[in-house]
Simulated assay, not measured.
Amino acid sequence: MTKEFDQPVDRKGTASQKWEKYSDSDILPMWVADTDFISPPSVIKALHERIDHGIFGYTNVPTELNELVIERMQNKYDWKVHPDWIVWLPGLVCGLNLACRAVGESGDTIVSAKPIYPPFMSSPRLSDRAVTTVPLKEQDGHYILDLESLAASITPQTKLLLFCNPHNPGGAVYRKEELEALAEIIIQNDLYICSDEIHCDLILEPGLKHIPISSLNEEIASRTITLMAPSKTYNIAGLGCSFAVISDSELRKQFINVRKGIVPDVNLLGYTAAIAAYKEGDEWNQNQLDYLRENRDFLIKEINQIPGLKLNPIEATYLAWIDVSGAKLSNPAHFFEQAGIGMSPGRDFGDANYMRLNFGCTRSTLEEAVKRIKAALINELPA
């Protein structure tokens, strides 16, 4: 294992959202999706240098950052992105909300998968849109959108699909043929798609590759709002720096219009960290991925030996979607908190039979969590 990720960092007393939730109790925080790893040295160095400059005024988008994104999209995905397609945002969730407002009108319908990251459910409603959900289906442990159900759910009022690739939760990486089939449904039904691809640099399964749906062809690209960010990969979510890629000029104009006067620009330290991460952070991330793979493999092996629990393969992300239905728990979130593990309740994602566990932590923390889960469930089971 890579030693730099094995070093515990005390985050207590830092106003950490993740750690403050359970600050007064012996509960391991394994819920919200940020890691307990120190960000890449290149990011920390760049932030120090910018702070030493001493002036923190209003900041334009650095040309270098746009160039790095364009180069990255070309090298990683053979996707040619133009500078004017990129819209910088202070967070990915606001991008979801803007997409819901930019497409269609009040009263229209937005469709999303279920289970899914909670803002996919709230964003349409906050935008005065109805929301329809389509189930994921499991194929050999690979959770993907049920395209037949999606096609059947579309009505004349349906204008937008909110999509997540890699999927949160579940960790699925969509294959090219799956994306092509989805794109065909989008085009045939005159829909738009907002694709959350924030976990694109966290592919754990060897041989799999992230494919932006917008990179397939110009026709689907013209209907796509792609959302990305360095935040999950390099643990810089607190610096608030994300971006949308929108090739269609009218769609981009609508997206920009609905943010005016509401969504602020990215702060200069967010830009600084993003430049350093994209410029010099890839080797660090490869080491992180090695560490996360070992955590994942350990967790899958251990969880699947605990009666009442099941954990399918995790292709991407550092988030485990654990089926707890076999344990017959009336309130799984409370039960595991009582056992000393604070996970995300599956009900928040649309399926109360699951819990989401963040394994972006030191191995010792993960081993302690598994120990507590085992002890709690063994005591719970009848003799």
Rank of each mutant, 00 (worst) to 15 (best):
V370P: 06
K301A: 15
K310V: 12
L269W: 02
E368Y: 01
Y354F: 15
I246S: 07
Y271N: 07
A277K: 00
T362W: 08
Y278D: 14
A276F: 10
I246Q: 10
R347I: 15
P332G: 01
L311T: 06
G350Q: 08
S325E: 12
P332T: 04
G308C: 02
S325Y: 03
L319Q: 07
R259L: 07
F359H: 11
P345K: 11
R296I: 13
L289D: 11
A276C: 04
I275L: 01
L299I: 00
N287P: 01
S249A: 14
G350I: 03
G346T: 07
L329W: 03
D290F: 02
N285F: 09
C361M: 09
G326S: 07
E283G: 06
V324H: 00
P313A: 08
P307V: 10
F335C: 12
G346P: 12
S344Q: 06
A277S: 11
R252D: 09
D248G: 04
L366Y: 05
G261H: 13
K301D: 15
A276D: 11
I275Y: 02
D265V: 08
D290N: 13
E283Y: 06
L292A: 00
A273T: 03
L319G: 13
I306N: 05
Y271K: 00
D297I: 13
A274M: 04
V263F: 00
L309W: 08
G342R: 02
G342S: 02
N358E: 14
D265N: 14
Q338M: 14
A320N: 12
I262M: 07
L311F: 05
L311G: 14
N331C: 12
N295C: 10
I341M: 07
A316L: 03
V370S: 05
D282N: 11
A320E: 10
G360A: 04
E302G: 04
P345D: 15
G326R: 09
I246N: 00
P313K: 01
K260W: 02
G342A: 12
I275C: 06
W284I: 09
Y291W: 13
L251F: 02
Q288D: 09
L329D: 04
K301C: 14
A316V: 09
L299N: 00
A327I: 13
D323E: 05
F336K: 02
V258W: 01
A333H: 15
T362L: 04
N312W: 01
R356A: 11
N312T: 15
P307N: 14
K310I: 01
F298C: 05
V245Y: 05
L309Y: 06
T272Y: 02
G342K: 08
D351P: 03
N304D: 14
I314C: 13
